[in-house]
């Protein structure tokens, strides 16, 4: 299941673990990324809290936790090469994986068509 947030993040659910990244729209808006700060594996995230930071040449942007859960894995390759996030934000450029506290909370997020409407 693929879902999106109003803050331009995507989540791909596999079992109770969601892979999280920034959307292609967000990546295009941000431009070239030069630095990314990812959460630590094991960190407990609360929905809406700052989970990661992505930085372009010009500015730093918080990436909020789209749902609550525990970080189980981070994309070290993306941290080592932030430009790779912009190259494939909704694929190889994922940021982290979290085990959701409540998988049903995914239902409250947008599907691809709804997100496409707000990111025109």
């Amino acid at each position: 299941m693929l879902r999106f947030t109003e803050d331009h993040e995507w989540l791909q659910l596999d079992g109770d673990v969601a892979t999280v990244g920034i959307t292609a729209f967000a990546a295009e808006q941000l431009g070239d990324l030069v630095y990314v700060e990812l959460p630590k594996p094991g960190a407990k995230l609360t929905k809406g809290s700052a989970a990661a930071v992505v930085e372009s040449v010009k500015a730093a942007s918080d990436v909020y936790a789209p749902l609550s859960g525990e970080v189980v894995e981070v994309n070290e390759a993306a941290a080592a090469d932030p430009a790779s996030i912009g190259a494939d934000p909704q694929g190889a450029g994922w940021l982290y994986r979290m085990r959701l506290d409540d998988v049903s909370a995914m239902d409250g997020l947008m599907d691809e068509a709804a997100y496409a409407d707000i990111s025109k």
């Binding site: 993040e9 992505v54 010009k58 500015a59 730093a60 942007s61 918080d62 990436v63 909020y64």
Partner: peptide, 11 residues
């Protein structure tokens, strides 16, 4: 996601 730091060149 939010732009929490605005660049000085774009205020």
């Amino acid at each position: 996601m939010s732009q929490n730091v605005q660049s000085a060149s774009c205020h």
